[in-house]
Design a protein around this nucleic acid. Structure first.
Lengths: 244, 244, 244, 244
DNA sequence: GATGAATGAGACTTCATTCAT
DNA sequence: AATGAATGAAGTCTCATTCAT
């Protein structure tokens, strides 16, 4: 950010090292985890001496936390940019899901890295910083859910819980890609994710119908009508139309 | 294995220690994570000498892996027992969700402990063993999903992906309980979880219709059936606007 | 040693275990050395429980020392038996060499095991016991050398040094057998050993003489006798040129 | 590697530590053996922190192996320098023996340390490295023996076996010095060693002589004439009267 | 006479961090 | 701004030894 004699804002050499280190750290942490990654590994990967790590970051934990926080920052920035649209809600929602999958696949290292910090054996301060970064997303998502609810697009639910669950879904998706014999394509992931969020898992009601009388029965009869009866019949306890 | 005077087979002394250690280890690992937990801590907690740990388990990693594997084993056993019912599907599914939430809360330590082994920085072998334990659940769940699909209760989807996602949802739920100012009750968790799996997130189409005066039932009927084609026809952009 | 009802001296069961342990220990120690051999290894090899080792020997060091001492005891007993002969000295000496090679090959494990105890990192007491066992052989050999000198068969030399050197030669021979691509046969070993002890390494002086026409005999005769003064007058630099 | 103002290449600081460690390790290992020597001891003796040991050597075994290998390297270098002479063979041989004794006494720690690695209980890899170092000497010596044979100075024998035996003789000599009530002087050791290698152990033929006429008889008569009869009568087969 | 689960002192080793250059 | 040799606290693991059975 320092001004040079030619008037341009030069990327400070410090920043060079700093960025090289962050990149190397992300790569290393996401592959081997925090504890299995050595400062030597990161230094070697970044092509700098070990001392340079400490010149740029006060400690390994700080490097990790900085990585996650800055990463999440940028993640949300991109999300903010991508999210703007004046499509009608259904298209908008579908697009939103697609953007998430794209970002998820792009930043998978970050998500892998930031997942489940409690269990990593960090010092409490670092745990808190990393959790706070995840919280940023959760809050961001919860807020979007609230907006969607207010606009009548989303059904009533606990926005914070659902946002946490969505984060969990991300982990689940990445896990599947990691473990599956044949990872799924971006498009399949997006459509599966979309389907889960819009319909849940149940099949539309079979033709022979458990339904009452006409209305609903008919809708289901055509093999569709996702929205309609679903919640009603199998709802958690009350089994009435007011699902949540 | 020695017979006691009352004719029962005595629990070998070894088993005593072994179980005490596993209990202590679960407690310790789930609270402080693998790396922050010292073998001394576990020994002290189990009330045995440090050497006894190594008499029963070859290494810290092995203890951890044994813990997760045996835990998952028992988790699935319980699941197997609880899952049997001759309720009609909707009730059965509801019960299943409830059983999962109960088990999840009961075994939360195990889930926290086993989540995301890569990120914990285990050695590759241990990562594999822990992942394999999680795979057991994924396979179990995927198989259940397939059965549900064949019976026509569940819509078409990629069972393995969905099973992984469900595992992610568990993590998300536990995370919420950990982070939220006010953790939710078991019943609320269960009903939220159930709702998500059965309805997704969208609000049922508002009564006032999406435009045509003809009413919900019909609207759904003509709604081109999200459920039906999910796995096949839907590219991210191909879906029709009316779906959501 | 306990008398049984049939009047025979039964080999006490204790001795059974004891001997099995000693055999196993010799095998193990000679192959892996003292420190790399675990009490578990010995117990497994002997087919007894670990506690049985301690029932028979107070400690690992004691087991080792007992092994070496009893082994050397028996070695010398055999030597004593084999050594008696009324052959003329040259044949006797040749036979002696052969017997040594045979015993060496038979008891190689013992020699490997007992070699160089200082460097093994024993407690001083054990070092002393093992060294004392080797000393037994050195003294035995030195005494034989003295007898040979008194009888005029062996040249003057420091019997103790030479006996130590002979022990070293044993080590050297075993080392060669261990390392060489093609170990030598017992007979070649014996004849090489014999040649070294009787002739040293030098080639017989070539027939064409050392120069003077007067003949070899005289040259040797005037040669101031290496043999004679060896132990006494010879500083390294004082020897006259003609000796070798 | 940095150039200093006087134009010499400065000794890298690393080398300083490294050499200090090697010196300390030689001292410690040779006195207490490998297993009884603690890394702490070496660090303290070298005046560096324990971590510095591991900064310079990957493990205790490696430090040991490096010590032996580099030591043997230097040993042979010195031998190479010292060995050059244009003396006639007899003097040359005598000098060679003397140089060996000197080096042996100078480097006794190294020899004690490297002796019989099997018996020390090293891991197989380290055993191999140490044995390989000893092999270096054996090969060196065997090659010298071959040259001596080709030049007609040394009698036929198996050069590799003899070289191994010579190494064994070194061990024997050092052992004697360690155990004897009164260690022998350097000169006595040298002359005894020389005598063994040139004459073997047998006394020159007694006066009543197998000898021919005057010459030899006379020589032997004066208590000298080493060479004469020795080989003939007891030689393994080939020996002629003129031993050397 | 024999067992083997349990012990615990102490070893080797790791690796984040420092600091003189 | 960068380096890399040096550090040392702290952890995992080993293994001879014990003792109740």
């Amino acid at each position: 950010m320092s001004a040079t004699r030619d008037g341009k804002t030069a990327i400070a050499p410090r920043s060079r090292s700093r960025q090289k280190i962050l990149d190397a750290a992300l790569h290393a942490f996401s592959r081997r985890g925090f504890h299995e990654t050595r400062m030597d590994d990161i230094a070697a990967l970044a092509g700098v001496a070990k001392g340079t790590l400490y010149y740029n970051f006060p400690s390994k934990s700080d490097l990790f936390a900085a990585l996650v926080c800055e990463g999440m920052e940028r993640f949300i920035e991109v999300l903010d940019r991508e999210i703007v649209s004046d499509l009608p809600f259904p298209e908008h929602f579908r697009r939103l899901v697609g953007v998430h999958i794209d970002l998820l696949l792009t930043w998978r290292d970050l998500f892998v890295t930031a997942a489940n910090p409690v269990a990593h054996g960090f010092d409490p301060e670092t745990v808190e910083r990393v959790e706070a970064a995840r919280d940023r997303y959760v809050e961001y998502a919860a807020s979007a859910i609230r907006t969607g609810q207010e606009a009548g697009y989303l059904r009533p639910c606990d926005p914070d819980l659902v946002a946490s669950q969505v984060l969990g879904l991300f982990d689940g998706i990445l896990r599947h890609q990691r473990r599956a014999a044949t990872p799924l394509s971006r498009d399949v992931l997006a459509s599966e994710f979309h389907a889960l969020l819009t319909q849940g898992l149940l099949a539309p009601r079979p033709a022979k119908g458990t339904g009452t009388g006409k209305g609903t029965g008919k809708g289901a009869g055509t093999g569709t009508g996702t929205g309609t009866g679903t919640g009603t019949e199998i709802g958690m306890g009350t089994g009435t139309g007011t699902v949540v």
